[in-house]
Structures are given as C-alpha cells and as structure tokens.
Amino acid sequence: MKHRWLLIHSLGVYVFLYGPILLLAALSFNRSPIGATWTGLTFNWYAKLFSDADIIDAAQRSLLIAAGATAVASVLGTAAALALSRPGTRGRGPTAGLLYLPIIVPEIVTGCALLTFFSVWRWELSLWTVGLAHISFSVSYVAIVVRARLAGIDRTLEDAAQDLGASPRAAFWRVTFPMILPGVVAGALLVFTVSIDDYVITSFVAGPASTTLPLRIASMVKTGLTPEVNAVSTLLLGLTMILVLVAQRLLRGPGEGSHI
C-alpha cells in the first residue's frame, strides 16, 4: 500500500494518545498496589471506592456543582448564541470577545482572579464559590457550540412560520428551538464533563470543605498512597468519554455536524 508509513505513524500516534489511558485502566484491576507489573486481576480497588467516604463525598459535590453550573450555563449560553446570531443585536463584537475570554485567559489567571474576587467580597470559599467559578467558564462553551449549530440552520424558516400565523415566540419554540436542541444538549453534556473534570480553577476557589473529585484525585496522586486512585480515575474517564461520545453523536445529527 502506497502510504504505509503514514498509516503506521498515525497508528503510533493513536497508541500514544490512548496508551496511558488504557494502562491506567488496566492497572486499576492490578492486584499490586504499586509499580506497573501485573500481579493478578482484582476488583478490590473498585470495591474500596464505595467505602471511601472522602471519595464519595467529593464525587457528590462534583456532580452537584456540575449539574448546577450546566443548568445555568445552558440557559445563558443558548440565549447568548441566539442573540449573537441575530443581525440587529447591539454589542455583538464585545460579547463575542467576552465569551472567548475564558478560553484565551490561562486557567491559572482566572483562578487567581476569582480567588481574589471572592476574598475582596469576603465570601467564604465553599461549593457556591466553586459553582460560580464553573459557570464563568461554562457559558462560553455552550454559546460556541450552539452558535455553530445555529450557523447551519436556515433562519428564514422562522419567518416562514410567522408568515403562516405563528407569533414570534411560537415560531421560535416550534421551529428554531427544536432544531438547535441537539446542539444545546450537546453543549450541556460537554460543559458537564468540563465541570466535573475541572482542576486548576477549582483548586483556587474551593474551600477545605468543598473538595471536588478532581481535587481529591490530585491529592491521592501526589501522595501516591491510595491505589484506589486508578480505579476512580478510570471510572471518571469512562463516564466523561461516554458523555462526550453522546455529545458528538448529537452534533453530527442531520446533515453537517460541527466538530468541536
């Protein structure tokens, strides 16, 4: 085959990308708590997760925050995307800039800024501060995904609906909204995964009682004492991968899908 080397190289890259993840998953079933040599199959580490109060609490907090942030971000982000796609809206340029800000500004900086912000207002670091922080970067993701979706939609359909007797509001809900719904859901799923996985910003704005799952995982990794970390990591990776796959499916939908 003519492009043999390209194929081999590409396969190698895929092995490179997925190797560490697969290794992690494999080791989560490894009997030995340290090292990387296979000593036998066990589900021990997974079982231990369920009795580890720290991990369960952290997971619950992460899910709660993610759900809340996703809900708020989905509404705001969709509204922003709709507004941006209307030609008459004022302030579109600056809004687009504002939406890109969380993506451009390094996470470290956002984290510091939020921490400083909360301390100036004398807010105690808690789940609320984490939630607000997550909202701050989630809105952008939803807005961008929905906006891409809107771009592929024929907006004159809404006009046609109005011509047929629907009020502007009815036209939106009966015509435009169903068409962008897959995009909204996909955006929500993506934001959910981003929120669950967030580490840097969360580490700045989480209080001692608001340890989220990634924070817990990070401390487990650094101390290197608890081997369940491989198990919980694998579970989290699996969950987010499934969510992302579903989101991709939704975006691919009828006709052209936007890749993220």
Partner: peptide, 17 residues
Amino acid sequence: IPFWTSFLIRISAWRII
C-alpha cells in the same frame, strides 16, 4: 475525544509510566 476528558487524570497516567 481524549481532549475532552480530564487533563489531570491523563497526565497522572504518565506518572505511572
């Protein structure tokens, strides 16, 4: 897809390696 999963976890996998 890897991009959308936890960066923290993926990098920690490299520690194992």
